[in-house]
Structures are given as C-alpha cells and as structure tokens.
Computed example of a mutant assay.
Amino acid sequence: MKKLIILITSALLLFTAFSCKKDIIEPDTDIENPVDTTGQDGGHTPPDSLDSQEPQPQPPSDKRITIRPVIKVGQIVYDSIPVQLIVRSWDTKNEMDYKIYYLPGPDDIYIPAKGARFHFTINKWGGQAERTFTQAELQDNASYTIGLQIEPKKIKSIVEVKIVEGKNTPLSKTDYEYAANGDITKRTIWGKRADFSNYIMQTDLFAYTNGDITSIKSYDEGNKPVKTLTARYDNQHRVVALEEVKGLEKISAKAGYFLLDTYSGNQQAYRIDVQYHLENGKYTDYYSRKMAAGRTIYDIYASHNGGNEEGYYDYDNSLNPYAHLRLPELNFSQHDMHNRTFPRKHYGHGRPEYEPYDYKYTYNPDGYPKELLTKYRHTGSKMDAYTMRTVFTY
C-alpha cells in the first residue's frame, strides 16, 4: 500500500512540471546571426549602434588646381588671354590619357586622382611651353604658372590704301629699320604725288637712353628738320613727360599713373591722366585713359574750348605690333597690347567729319595682323564714307 502511494505522488509531480514548462515563452533568436545587445551595464543597446567594423579608407579624390598661362613677347607680358591647354596623364600602369582645355585666361581644372604624373602643354602664337608634375607635387587648390617666352616680330613695312566706292588709291608706305639689338632706329614714310610717283613725306630718327626712346627727330624730303619729340620716363619705364617742338610751336604733356581696383582681371587696372599745354602754354587740355588687361576700356579728352570726346572700346586677343615698337606718342596709344575692334564715341561741342566704326583683321599664324580693313563714316549722318586698307609686313 505504501509503495502505491509513492508511485501516485511521483506521477502527480511529473504532470505538474510538464504543465508549467509549456507556459514559458522562448526568445525569437536568429540562430545563424546572433547579436548580443547587452551593454556593459546589463542594459540593451540598439542594434544600429553596434557597428564594430574598422573605418574603410576613402578613395583619393580629384584635385582642383589653377593654371596661369603667362606669355612674354619681347618686353610685354600677356597673362589675361585665352590659350589652349593639353594635359597628358599616366597612371601607375603607364597608360596615357589626355584632355584639351580652352582657358579664357587663368582658370581652374581638375586633375584625376588615378594619374601618377602629368604633362602640361600650352601652344600660343607659334610658341610652346611645357611643365611636368607628379601627383604628389600637385596640391589641391594651388596655382601653377606655365610661362612662355617669344621674340616679337618687328614691322618691316606698312602700306595704306584708301578705298572709295571700290576704287583703290595708294596713300602711303612706312618702312622701319632696326639695330642689331632690335631697337628701332629709323622710320621712313613714303607718299604718292598726283602723278603716282613716290616721295619721302617724313623721316624719323630715334635716340635711346637706358633702353627707352628719349628723342624722335623728324625731317622732310629735303632733310630739313620738321619737328622733335622728347620723352622722359619714370623708373618703371613709363612715359611721364613729352614735349613736341614744331617750328615755333611747342606742345608739352605731363602724365600720371594711378592704380584702380574697380575692374577685375589678372593684370592690374590703372588710369593715365595727362595734362597738355598747347601753343607754348597758352591753352590747357586734359586727357584720361583707363586701362585693364592691356586694353583701353575708356578714355575722355576735354579741350580748352569746351569740347570733349569720350570713347569706349573693344579689343581682340591678338598681338598689337605697334605696342612692341614702344614708341612714345602724345596720345599714349603705345599702352594698348591688343588690337582695337570696335569703338563707341560720344562728342560734345564739336565733332570730326569722319570717324572709324568698324575694324576687320586678318591674322598670321603668329598672332599678328597682316591686314586691316577700317571703315569710316560721316560722324553726323552715320553714312559710309570710305575704307582704309592697311597691309603689314614683318
């Protein structure tokens, strides 16, 4: 009887234990990717913050650099002109790639990160400049200059022909002579008589001091003195004083140069203010010329009689052959490094009978004009009057 009671009691205990086990809720665990969300303090950490992987290195990015093309022709520096840039690059396997850029002047380009070394080439006006860099030598957001030196081409002769209603009339021919060092020594201006025979209109002889033209003496066909122009310069080789004596008459000019910050551009903008004393100092006129990047952008001449003339101008990006002669002139036109293409003129209290209004150039491969057609019109009616054809030989 005692054994029977023990068996019944054991059976009841097993039944109770089995019934309790069925009420326990098991956690839903990913057996293949278990994640321990228990923090050090026993709490739970959101799974998103449990990325325990090491940061992966980022691939190198392309570099942005500034290319500054600087071309020096003779003594004149051109650094605000469009150029063609060729960039060749080689990767670590020595495979080459290249790109062609047309820069308006100093401009930014991107250097590919995969390139190991780079070769830059600039072609302009018959010259070529090159620079080579490794990837390590090129710094992001840095500026690099590619310089080119070219010898200027000097004018040998200039022929001018006047065209009226299709009829060509030769007017003049100007011949230039130079010393061995390239300095101009003599200029001969030939004219045409009514019978179309040639004669010497004027001969100019040039004298120098410290590399600057300080005297121009002019003679007529009979070798008689016509006029003398003398020039004085500052320590930057800029004309600060001019005096022209013609017979008993004298014109003198004094010039000042003032830096401007109101115009953008790689080259410093500046203004030239000139005061003229006419008829041996009897009258005073004023002239102001604003320059930017080697171009006259605005000028105004105020006469003692109350008249004035204002001008706004456009230019090309080619070489002005007159600028390389470095001739001191009363109108200070030697400062224009490029060729004028379009003027906009305003007159007050008097105007010339004719005015130029259109310039068309034909250029040689070296960037110099070989022919220029200048159209003139009546200033008042704006009707076409004639065309001047100018032919350059170098």
Results as ranks from 00 to 15, higher is better:
149 Q>K: 11
136 A>R: 15
162 K>G: 08
194 A>T: 09
160 E>G: 01
213 I>T: 07
156 K>W: 04
188 T>I: 13
225 P>L: 05
159 V>A: 13
214 T>A: 10
159 V>C: 03
199 Y>E: 02
199 Y>T: 01
188 T>V: 06
175 D>C: 03
224 K>G: 08
149 Q>G: 11
164 V>D: 06
126 G>E: 03
229 L>C: 12
198 N>K: 12
165 E>W: 09
230 T>E: 15
119 H>V: 08
232 R>T: 12
231 A>S: 14
210 N>F: 00
142 A>T: 09
212 D>A: 15
177 E>N: 12
216 I>G: 00
239 V>C: 15
148 L>H: 07
214 T>C: 07
163 I>W: 00
219 Y>N: 04
218 S>M: 06
203 T>N: 05
172 S>Q: 05
124 K>R: 07
159 V>T: 08
136 A>P: 15
119 H>Y: 13
184 I>K: 01
122 I>P: 01
215 S>F: 10
126 G>W: 00
155 I>K: 13
155 I>P: 01
217 K>C: 03
133 F>I: 14
137 E>I: 09
148 L>E: 12
137 E>N: 15
134 T>I: 10
162 K>Q: 09
145 T>I: 09
215 S>Y: 11
149 Q>N: 15
131 R>S: 10
228 T>S: 14
208 Y>M: 14
163 I>T: 11
219 Y>S: 02
215 S>Q: 14
131 R>F: 03
229 L>E: 07
153 K>P: 03
192 K>Y: 13
147 G>K: 14
169 T>W: 07
219 Y>G: 02
178 Y>K: 06
195 D>Y: 00
222 G>Y: 05
240 V>L: 02
200 I>L: 00
173 K>D: 00
129 A>P: 04
165 E>F: 13
157 S>L: 02
128 Q>A: 05
220 D>K: 05
217 K>W: 07
179 A>R: 11
199 Y>R: 03
232 R>N: 10
142 A>H: 15
151 E>A: 07
178 Y>Q: 11
129 A>R: 13
162 K>N: 14
119 H>M: 08
153 K>T: 06
135 Q>G: 15
194 A>Y: 00
153 K>C: 03
225 P>V: 03
212 D>V: 12
193 R>Y: 07
221 E>V: 11
122 I>Y: 03
189 I>P: 02
173 K>H: 00
121 T>F: 10
181 N>V: 01
153 K>D: 08
138 L>G: 06
130 E>V: 15
119 H>Q: 13
202 Q>N: 10
166 G>F: 00
